[in-house]
């Protein structure tokens, strides 16, 4: 379903990623694991269509991402890929609900308030719908970020270091939520993390070797 072939990515003529082949099937939950600077964030960006690799092909549900140019690529990403960033990056100027409906609009989908309400309710955020992100606790903000990634029922959810800076209890809770919700939405899940605590929870792991002087 999500497949890469012959991916090599260089940054300032420094090879930061070299992945001959990797594949995730529908509903799979993968951990991209490795130390800082191993290129897992780079890979995540490549999988998410945020970055075009120097070489190689990424295919999502039969569509080769590299063939989609400009606006078409943006729309495709918005519809089929959900991303949870490490820093969450909720848009502070607008409410929680608006963060969600904005994701619908940018994906080129009709705004569906009922869907926004539904997912907020599932994630226990119904009473925060009209709150601004800066008024949320970290846990709440994390759930909003997840809701935003899932609202368009993407084929795959990408999460960058979802457990960093969390204590054991919260890390476990965040991870469980992420995995449960991805499963509930029928989305594949790919997590990039250097967190050793979560390593054993995943059957499917892609270990990326450390690289010296690598960016990202």
């Amino acid at each position: 379903m999500l497949e890469v072939a012959g991916i090599r990515h260089s940054y300032q003529s420094q090879l930061v990623l070299d992945l001959p082949h990797w594949r995730a099937d529908e509903g799979d939950q993968w951990l991209l694991h490795g130390p800082s600077g191993c290129g897992k964030s780079t890979l995540l960006h490549i999988l998410g269509g945020l970055l075009t690799p120097s070489e190689g092909i990424v295919t999502l549900a039969g569509t080769e991402l590299g063939t989609l140019r400009g606006a078409a690529g943006d729309r495709y990403r918005g519809r089929h890929i959900g991303i949870v960033f490490q820093q969450l990056h909720l848009i502070d100027a607008i409410t929680v609900r608006q963060n969600l409906t904005l994701a619908q609009r940018f994906a080129g989908l009709p705004v569906d308030e009922a869907r926004a309400t539904e997912i907020l309710t599932v994630l226990g955020l119904a009473d925060k719908a009209n709150a601004f992100p800066f008024a949320l606790s970290h846990g709440q903000a994390q759930r909003v970020a997840l809701a935003r990634a899932l609202i368009n029922r993407p084929a795959v959810v990408l999460a960058d270091e979802p457990t960093s800076n969390l204590d054991d209890e919260n890390a476990a809770r965040a991870l469980a939520l992420l995995r449960d919700q991805a499963r509930a939405h029928g989305s594949a899940l790919v997590i990039a993390s250097h967190d050793g605590r979560i390593k054993d929870a995943f059957e499917k792991r892609l270990e990326l070797p450390a690289r010296r002087e690598a960016a990202a």
Partner: peptide, 16 residues
């Protein structure tokens, strides 16, 4: 910058 990058990640085009 982050807001804009996130909007792009959410599907917003450069034109948008």
């Amino acid at each position: 910058r982050y807001d804009i990058a996130v909007m792009r990640a959410l599907g917003a085009t450069r034109g948008t």
